[in-house]
């Protein structure tokens, strides 16, 4: 019995090392195919944030050897696409209080305020983004 428990624990922690995983394997797929990113088109004072976050995204995909494709549209359109699994992430000046928090998962903020919206259930992707944000802040 003891041996069984020890083997189970070792296996569990061995498997546990690469947790969490994505529900739809988005992060791994982005290495071979593409990470589909929606960028909110803004004409107001927040337009510079969209540009800044797009640059940040370029750094994130470069750091993780991912391929990326951008799709520019309005918030509502992009959230609909996110829900339909057409895109993986939306960027463009969202804060933790965003109205879309029921429709998407939020990352931790990269500057104590702004977050990215990620397809729900993609825990590895969120994990890697948060690691990238943390390293950026250091």
């Amino acid at each position: 019995m003891q041996k069984f428990i020890i083997i189970f624990c070792v296996l569990f922690f061995w498997w546990g090392c690469d947790l969490p995983r994505d529900t739809k394997d988005t992060f791994e797929k982005a290495k071979k195919e593409s990470l589909h990113v929606g960028v909110v088109v803004r004409t107001d004072s927040l337009s510079s944030i969209s540009v800044f976050e797009k640059n940040l995204m370029d750094q994130f995909v470069a750091a993780n050897n991912l391929k990326v494709s951008y799709n520019h549209s309005t918030e509502t359109q992009l959230v609909k696409q996110l829900e339909k699994d057409k895109i993986d992430i939306i960027i463009g000046g969202f804060t933790e209080k965003t109205l879309w928090k029921d429709k998407a998962a939020l990352t931790a903020p990269y500057d104590k305020e702004h977050v990215w919206l990620v397809k729900k259930g993609e825990n590895r992707l969120v994990f890697e983004i948060e690691k990238f944000f943390y390293n950026q802040m250091q």
Binding site: P20, T23, A105, L106, A108, K120, G121, N123, V126, Y134
Partner: peptide
């Protein structure tokens, strides 16, 4: 509903 769980940093470890 697909639950999403984030991460935290403790003493520099994610």
């Amino acid at each position: 509903e697909h639950p999403t769980i984030g991460s935290t940093f403790i003493f520099g470890h994610q």
